[in-house]
Design a protein around this nucleic acid. Structure first.
Length: 600
RNA sequence: CGGGGCGUGGCGCAGCUUGGUAGCGCGGGUGCUUUGGGAGCACUAGGUCGCAGGUUCGAAUCCUGUCGCCCCGACCA
């Protein structure tokens, strides 16, 4: 390809709305253009990158025996109602774009494909003899994100590889799960990415075992907690740890304490000269629960701990045996709308009585009370006295409502001791999730009644796994991890081109001719080569070459008349002057050197 | 959804407070010079100031509404 024919538009100034480096560089280098919020056009250069990633993904998936397919993006609501996800994915802050066709049928734009694939498996697979089978596809997915941001990192339309496996039993699922884990590690390593595998919550998709693959980068949106010995890594939602000990509280008698105008735990503690770990704080939330009345939830936490909403959601679902569709803090305005009297926010205790809900119009009339174990473990603590600006000292939980359920609700934090080895202290990192593998179990096959006949001749639901890679996100994550002050440095395996030939001055016949000869030779040797034949000044072309991040650069310039060219490596700007006859050999050698060792 | 901010040539911005019919830098086109790190000079094209109402003799500027985009947040109010 010739740069003069590439529709290349690089920007001198960074567009104002790009926040993180990778987003800025992709815009500046002419790789992507925003079309709407969270919706991007992949320009020709970017498309080459995406195709290269896809190719690697295909090779690794194929080598596990998975079958490539292509499923519809437009999906009938019926399938989603059968799996029970239609409500959760469309109501409230649901992320599924949905629409009505001319016959008033409801459809969703696929954010994922469990329903479709499971219903196909139901139709196509009847016997254990057909199992196991894994299907995968690479295509555009749609998610109406609450807040799209950072270019391709969190977009509303994105490219994803998703795979689904079907098995006759858990052991077989385990085997495929492991082979996917292995394939994923190969994929990321071949793409030139440093990726960390972490334990994860399976979230809205449901299921048992789950692992995320994180590109470590400051700009990442996810918090990861790791142990220095490398034996434990989990994302914030899932991470467990041993919290620091609470400082024992000296005062022992029940006593009321005036605490006017204490906006926060911190100021409360400062005024009373106590530690946050000696306080029990209460948060009131309202959960929308499938098939039930809105449920007020009273959450008790130790003052120095943070609420983990994912753990809370899981705990609620577990206790009520129903899906949690939505979970939000209760606001004074909501209380008013519900016909309830005001509550002493800021001074609520774990024993706030259900009387507070007695006049509720639509809500359940009693609290679901859940307390984090660290709060339950406190012997003596300070908590709200259920009256504005009033707190009190409590001696243990004896006097508290009997229906308080203990659960792990807290966020693990950097510095906490690790469960597997208390001498290890958790460290915090930021990461970009580029892959996620799950063992779904039988959640979807049960819901959609997707069954096969097993060896005993009886009917049984499929065991399922699902495995995703955010292809477009991975491409941007690669930029986030590989760049310098001059621009992008693509890992060679996913670079839009492997080599760029820059003819310093196309008006110089000798340079132009030599450039063209080298270009032809490289094309003949199947090298992905780009020829910068533009009638621009050399400086402009060098700047663009840096920005575009092509790993190897051949400069045909002044020394062309002696048959010499310069070969420059983008990564470290090491350059050598060589005879043009040796060019091809040297370039091929360098291309191989730049690949990860195990794939040269 | 809550809070904050911004919409003015392709990009980055000024002008708005104090109304008088639009400007700067970069980019585009043409010509000459230049030619290894985002060149110089000259000429030139390009904007119903997001949109809709209103106030006014007169609106980019003031008022109302609306659309779009960006940032922060959703852990005791």
């Amino acid at each position: 390809m010739r740069v003069s024919r590439l529709m290349l538009v690089t920007l001198r100034e960074i567009p104002a709305d790009a926040e993180i480096t990778s987003h800025q560089l992709l815009l500046k280098g002419g790789f992507i253009r925003r079309v709407a919020s969270g919706v991007y056009a992949y320009l020709p250069l970017m498309w080459r990158v995406l195709k290269k990633i896809t190719r690697i993904v295909q090779q690794e998936m194929d080598s596990t025996g998975a079958l490539e397919t292509l499923l519809p993006q437009l999906q009938p609501s019926e399938l989603w109602k059968q799996s029970g996800r239609w409500e959760a994915y469309t109501a409230g802050e649901g992320i599924m774009f949905n629409l009505k066709d001319r016959q008033n049928r409801y459809l969703g734009l696929g954010p994922t494909h469990e329903e479709v694939i499971t219903s196909l498996a139901k139709e196509l697979i009847n016997s254990y003899r057909q199992l196991p089978v894994t299907l995968y596809q690479t295509q555009t997915k749609f998610r109406d994100e609450i807040r799209p941001r950072f270019g391709l990192m969190r977009s509303r339309e994105f490219i994803m590889k998703d795979a689904y496996s079907f098995h006759a039993n858990q052991e077989c699922l385990d085997k495929t799960y492991k082979s996917m884990d292995n394939a994923y590690r190969n994929i990321f390593s071949r793409c030139g990415l440093k990726v960390l595998a972490v334990e994860a919550d399976s979230g809205a998709i449901g299921g048992v075992a789950s692992q995320e693959f994180m590109v470590t980068a400051e700009a990442g949106e996810d918090n990861i907690l790791t142990s220095p010995d490398g034996k434990y890594a989990a994302n914030q939602e899932k991470a467990v740890s041993i919290p620091p000990m609470a400082k024992p509280l000296e005062l022992s008698k029940d006593s009321l304490i005036e605490t006017p105008l204490n906006g926060s735990i911190n100021s409360l503690c400062k005024t009373l000269e106590i530690e946050a770990s000696q306080v029990v704080k209460v948060i009131l939330m309202l959960g929308k629960i499938e098939g039930k009345k809105p449920q007020p939830i009273l959450i008790s936490l130790r003052g120095d701990q943070e609420l983990n909403e994912v753990k809370l959601t899981n705990a609620i679902a577990d206790i009520l045996k129903a899906e949690v569709l939505d979970l939000h803090k209760i606001t004074p305005n909501q209380l008013k709308l519900e016909g309830l009297s005001e509550l002493p926010f800021g001074a609520i205790g774990p024993d706030l009585t259900n009387d507070a809900l007695s006049k509720a119009k639509t809500w359940s009339s009693s609290f679901l009370r859940i307390a984090d174990r660290t709060a339950i473990d406190l012997r003596t603590f300070l908590c709200g006295a259920n009256k504005l600006n009033l707190h009190r000292i409590c001696n243990g939980w004896e006097g508290m409502p009997k229906d308080t359920i203990s659960a792990d609700l807290r966020n693990s934090q950097a510095g906490d001791s690790c469960v597997h080895d208390p001498t290890q202290r958790l460290q915090e990192k930021r990461g970009i999730e580029v892959g996620h593998i799950f063992q779904l179990g039988r959640k979807y096959s049960d819901a959609l009644e997707a069954r096969f006949t097993n060896e005993e001749g009886t009917s049984e639901s499929f065991w399922m796994g699902c495995y995703g890679i955010g292809v477009s996100r991975l491409a941007q994550a690669a930029v986030e991890q590989n760049n310098d002050e001059h621009g992008i440095i693509w890992p060679i395996s996913i670079a839009p081109f492997e080599v760029i030939i820059v003819i310093a001055n196309v008006q110089d016949e000798t340079q132009l001719k030599l450039g063209e000869i080298l270009y032809q030779r490289m094309k003949d040797s199947n090298i992905d080569v780009l020829l910068d034949d533009r009638k621009e000044r050399a400086g402009v072309k060098f700047k663009d070459a840096d920005l575009l991040g092509v790993p190897l650069r051949v400069i045909v310039g002044r020394d062309a008349k002696e048959g010499k060219i310069e070969l420059l490596r983008r990564l470290d700007r090491q350059s050598i002057v060589i005879n043009q006859q040796d060019a091809l050999k040297k370039i091929i050698a360098q291309i191989n050197e730049l690949k990860p060792p195990e794939f040269q």
